[in-house]
């Protein structure tokens, strides 16, 4: 099994559009969406049977009002301002980071730590196997959920395509484990460029081979050229650029795959795909 991961750093650069086109071109039998904070790929592949498992995050504090002696020690010690005393002592589950300090200082043993469902781990099966997950709002760390999503992938023939999370934090690191190749999608803006550099720094630490493509390159050709110069100087594969095209969103909204049309963006995606396969 070969795994291809698609990443971007900054959100909204067209990662999912490229991932879904690649799935089509590779006739991929297995793929995953690791963008668990804002998953999108399931909008295109929700046929077939669906299995859902709850995802548990860190246990959070819960104060038993009947046992609480209202001494206020928990509130004094909580560094996350997660405990309020407006109407008895209560824990705000969105702020609680589950550190356990309140339970330790409580003289009445009124606090216990309860498992909370922080999201779900989903598997769709049709003539493909599609692993995804979603994080409930306000639930912090998603690295473990990304690992759970990846664990649902099996050894299989052909190419497994993974739509990665945005940013460069813990979920991104988790999504990189075990992949054979990483395609970075960037866009020609100051923020896209600086995020791409941070991304490449992170990838290089894992020694995974990578290549970069630019989406909407013609929006700012100066920055596109700066990006290409940067890649050349740092000896990183640059494998193509997609034009800005208003038609793309229409096609996506109608569930038409770009690579089935003669749209210039679709044509270039095919070219990029071919180069990725050659490099792999």
């Amino acid at each position: 099994m070969k795994q291809l991961l698609i990443l971007s750093g900054k959100g909204g650069t067209g990662k999912t559009t490229i991932a879904s086109s690649f799935i089509r071109l590779a006739k991929s039998k297995q793929f995953a969406d690791c963008d668990v904070e804002a998953p999108n790929l399931h909008l295109m592949y929700k046929k077939g049977s669906k299995d859902s498992k709850p995802y548990y995050g860190l246990k959070k504090a819960f104060i038993d009002q009947d046992v609480c002696v209202e001494c206020g020690l928990c509130k004094d010690h909580c560094r996350f301002n997660a405990i309020t005393d407006d109407d008895g002592y209560k824990v705000n589950p969105f702020k609680c980071e589950g550190c356990g300090v309140c339970g330790y200082v409580c003289p009445a043993n009124a606090i216990d730590f309860q498992q909370s469902t922080d999201g779900s781990i989903d598997l769709y099966q049709d003539n493909y196997r599609f692993s995804t997950g979603s994080l409930k709002m306000g639930s912090g760390n998603s690295g473990l959920l990304v690992s759970e999503v990846k664990k649902q992938l099996q050894d299989s023939e052909g190419l497994t395509i993974i739509d990665g999370p945005p940013g460069i934090g813990c979920p991104v690191i988790a999504s990189m484990s075990g992949v054979d190749f990483i395609l970075v999608v960037t866009e020609p803006s100051m923020s896209g460029f600086s995020d791409m550099k941070r991304m490449i720094e992170t990838i290089r630490k894992t020694k995974t081979p990578l290549a970069v493509c630019i989406n909407k390159y013609d929006i700012n050709k100066d920055i596109s050229n700066n990006i290409k110069d940067y890649l050349y100087e740092n000896n990183i594969n640059f494998i193509g650029e997609l034009p800005f095209d208003k038609e793309v969103n229409n096609l996506i909204n109608q569930s038409i795959s770009l690579v089935d049309t003669d749209n210039p963006v679709g044509v270039e995606i095919k070219n990029i795909y071919k180069q990725v396969i050659d490099l792999m």
């Binding site: 994080l135 306000g138 912090g140 945005p166």
Partner: peptide, 9 residues
């Protein structure tokens, strides 16, 4: 911040 994490709240 983007997303729906605790920092947005």
């Amino acid at each position: 911040p983007p997303g729906n994490g605790c920092s947005v709240m």
